[in-house]
Each structure stands twice: as C-alpha cells, then as structure tokens.
Amino acid sequence: MEAKPQKQFPDYGSLGYARLSTTVTTFQLPLTSSCVTCKVCQSYIDIIGKRHQYVVKCNECHEATPIRNAPRGKRYIRCGCKCLLVCRDAALRVSCPRPNCKRTISLISSIAYDKVPVFVCAYCSNPFRFDVPQDSLNVSNLVKCPRHYCKRVSAVGGRDLARKWAMVFLMLSAALFTVGIALVCSTTQAAESSNGGIYVAYIGLFLIALICLLRTYHYWTMKVSRIEGTV
C-alpha cells in the first residue's frame, strides 16, 4: 500500500528549523502531593518546599519539569533536546538557548495545521496567528497585532467590516453635528444668560462628533493584513 504523502509545513525559521514542537500541558497539583514524575526520565522529584516554583529540576536527568501552569500569556515548550522553554502564547517560533542545540522551533503543531491561518501584519510585516475557521477566511474581520511594539488593528479577509464601522461612525458624527448646530441655533438667547455653562455642552457635543469623525477616517483607511497560509 502506497504511503500517503505528508503535508509540507512552511519554513518560518532558519536553517536549524525544527518543524514540530511539543507543547507541555500542566495542571495544579493537589495540596497533598509531595513529589511529581519527571516528564523526561520518569523519575520521582521531591517538591516539598518548592511548590511556589513554576518548574523543578530532576536530580537524575537534570531537566526541568513544570509543576504549575505557565504564567498568564506564557506557555511551556519542550525542545527536541529535552530543554524546557517558556515562551509567549502568541509566539510562532522560539530558539533553544542551549549552545549545543540552538535550533529554531516552530510552535505550530500538525493538529492545528488545517485550522489556524497565519497573516502578515499590514503595519509591522510580522506574521501572527488568527483563530478563524478555515471556511471563514474570506469573511472580513478586525484583528489586533499581538506584537508588543505594534498592537495596531488591521482587517483580514477584506475591508468590508472596517468600511461598515466607518459608515456607522460617519452617520453618528453627522447626527451629532446636526444636533449640535440645532442646539446652538435654538439656545442662543439662553446661552447669554447661562453664565457660560451651556457653552460646555456645546464643546462636549462637538468634541464627541469630531472623535466619531476621526474614527471614521481610521476605519476607512485601515490596512488589510494578507494571509501567509494556513498552519
């Protein structure tokens, strides 16, 4: 029987690229636990007095084993050389720090390959994952780039949703400007005897209308992040 050809993974790393990585899942240990099993050599590790730590080191193989869930926004990754790494949850790849390894590990598993698309940010040109069903790739969505130095919102799947929000803010801005002008025309005499209090309402109303107009420009000129592939 002829073997089924495997789907090729896009190379997001360097020459030392490792195509698959192992995500380490952990759990909160019971309060009565005094030892855990090493995830590498299966030896028992005494954790008395170490429960406040996130990981413990095995005395047999000298590899780290997590005993608590990773900090918020982080996850554990086990390199092929058995080194335990802690990386950002949104990261696409990570490099092993060991001098005798130095491989670049893809954080894309084969299970998620057909489910999670990768987009290239239209502003910082860095790839990011956006969890959207495969059959919804052509549906317009608004996403924020996870890179800490970018964090800008772009459209994926087209500008339709961004243009809809632009029209909503445009109509809201026009309505507020109309109300503001009508209010100014109808309360001119009252404003003269209000000791300036009503002018604050004028300024606030027109300021909100201006903010809505700026949001209209923001959504109308929003860039579209292109799809790099599904991973």
Rank of each mutant, 00 (worst) to 15 (best):
P71K: 10
C121T: 03
K223E: 11
R152Q: 05
Y123N: 03
N141G: 05
I105N: 01
K223W: 02
S173K: 01
R98Y: 13
V224D: 15
T32C: 09
P133F: 05
K144E: 09
S34Q: 12
V55C: 07
G180N: 01
Y217K: 07
V224T: 15
I208A: 04
C145Q: 09
I203L: 15
C83V: 08
G180C: 01
H148S: 15
E192C: 05
C83P: 00
A209M: 13
S14F: 13
F9R: 05
D46Q: 12
E228H: 07
K102R: 01
D160T: 02
H148Q: 14
V36F: 06
K50V: 00
A91W: 06
W220G: 05
L183V: 02
K164S: 08
S194K: 07
D11P: 00
L92F: 08
Y219F: 15
N141W: 13
L84I: 12
S193W: 11
Q6R: 12
D131F: 10
G180M: 01
Y12D: 00
Y219D: 09
T25W: 11
S21M: 08
C79S: 08
C101D: 02
S95R: 14
H148G: 11
L31D: 09
R159N: 06
C35T: 10
N138P: 01
T32E: 14
V118W: 03
Q53D: 14
R72H: 11
N195C: 14
A190Q: 14
V36E: 04
L176W: 04
N138M: 07
F177L: 01
N100V: 12
A155R: 07
L29Y: 07
Y17N: 03
H148C: 13
D131S: 08
T65Q: 02
I45Y: 10
L31A: 11
S225Y: 06
P146S: 05
E228S: 06
V132Y: 00
V36A: 04
E60L: 04
R72L: 08
C185D: 14
Y17M: 04
T188M: 13
S173T: 02
C121R: 03
L20C: 01
S110W: 06
E63K: 15
P99E: 09
I45R: 09
R68I: 01
L213M: 12
F128L: 11
R215C: 15
K151W: 04
C38H: 08
M1N: 10
V40Y: 06
K144A: 06
V24F: 05
G49Q: 05
S21G: 15
S193D: 04
S109W: 04
T22A: 00
W165E: 06
K74F: 15
A182L: 11
F169H: 11
P146V: 00
Q42R: 12
V116F: 01
C35S: 14
D46H: 09
T22C: 00
Q28K: 14
H218L: 04
R78D: 05
F119W: 09
T32V: 08
H52Y: 02
R93H: 11
K102P: 01
V200M: 09
T187W: 13
E192V: 05
M1T: 11
T216W: 13
Y113Q: 03
L214R: 12
R215A: 13
A91D: 14
I208N: 02
I105W: 00
R72C: 06
R88F: 12
L210C: 04
P5F: 11
S110L: 07
A191Y: 00
T187G: 10
I111C: 00
T26I: 03
S140M: 02
I45P: 04
T22H: 03
